[in-house]
């Protein structure tokens, strides 16, 4: 059996890749409840960072702090070396909750972000059409979200966020609703889109296998009040195989790191 010796990442300036997101001493408390406790890390440009941790450890809260939906209690988050600004930074966010817009048909849902960004109509059409094929929604363009299954609905949200070609893509347990076949397919799609566009991705998941399969680096959070238990860099070659001994070793290592009981 292969054992895994993690290269714990301590020197954050050691990498050659420029930093996309810089998190310093991030603390977030809701009244008395301390959720994130003095967290510091970087997300490098073009990196796919998976964030794992126990349920309720503040993974979603972190994403909300990053976009400014939730004000920070203290510390700072810099995107491209400046405070996050939704008007300037091109961010995509795949929510955990259903986030399709119920009064728009599938086509207009996918076009929603592009229209907000006021892209020229021909560009909107070409991007939407391409995305519909990518996520397999071609047959459903004239449906309303309520007429779709949960997994189809989530694909609409994915297509909408992919279509804006964000340079920072935040995904909050995006594949929780999906069956294994679709999940595998869309995991590969995220990776492909990320490589094509050079997107930086922060991917929150509770599925350790998914994290090891996708991530360049995994951030393991502890239980509330959350700190970083460990950062695990994964340099397995791609495509990765679940049954490869190295894969299993890393997966087990992350599982051990996440354990709070």
């Amino acid at each position: 059996m292969t054992t895994y010796n993690p290269k714990t990442v301590t020197d954050q300036s050691g990498s050659h890749d420029p930093v996309k997101v810089k998190v310093r001493h991030l603390t977030k408390a809701y009244d008395e409840l301390l959720v994130l406790n003095d967290i510091s890390f970087d997300i490098r440009k073009g990196e796919l960072l998976c964030i794992v941790g126990p349920t309720g450890c503040g993974k979603t809260t972190f994403l909300n702090c990053l976009t400014g939906f939730a004000p920070l209690t203290s510390g700072e988050i810099l995107i491209d070396n400046e405070p996050g600004n939704l008007f300037r930074h091109n961010i995509g966010f795949v929510f955990q909750e259903p986030s399709t817009i119920p009064w728009l048909k599938v086509w207009d849902n996918v076009a929603f972000g592009l229209k907000i960004k006021k892209l020229p109509p021909p560009e909107v059409i070409s991007r939407v059409e391409k995305m519909l094929d990518t996520v397999g929604l071609r047959r459903f363009v004239d449906y309303y979200p309520r007429e779709l299954s949960a997994s189809l609905e989530q694909r609409v949200a994915l297509a909408r966020e992919f279509a804006v070609k964000p340079d920072l893509l935040l995904m909050d347990e995006p594949y929780g609703q999906m069956d294994i076949k679709l999940r595998y397919y869309l995991e590969d799609e995220v990776r492909r889109i990320q490589m094509e566009e050079g997107t930086t991705v922060a991917f929150v998941t509770h599925n350790i296998e998914e994290a090891v399969y996708l991530a360049d680096r995994i951030l393991v959070l502890s239980q509330k009040p959350s700190t970083i238990n460990e950062e695990v860099a994964i340099d397995l070659p791609r495509p990765r195989r679940f049954d490869a001994p190295e894969f299993v070793a890393i997966r087990n290592h992350v599982t051990e790191a996440i354990k709070w009981w």
Partner: peptide
């Protein structure tokens, strides 16, 4: 959540009002 979908793409508060709140 729908308001956030619009905001994350850089919609102003009034745009969110028009595109999400009003409908």
């Amino acid at each position: 959540i729908l308001a956030r979908v619009a905001r994350v793409h850089g919609a102003s508060d009034f745009t969110v009002f028009l595109k999400i709140g009003l409908p």
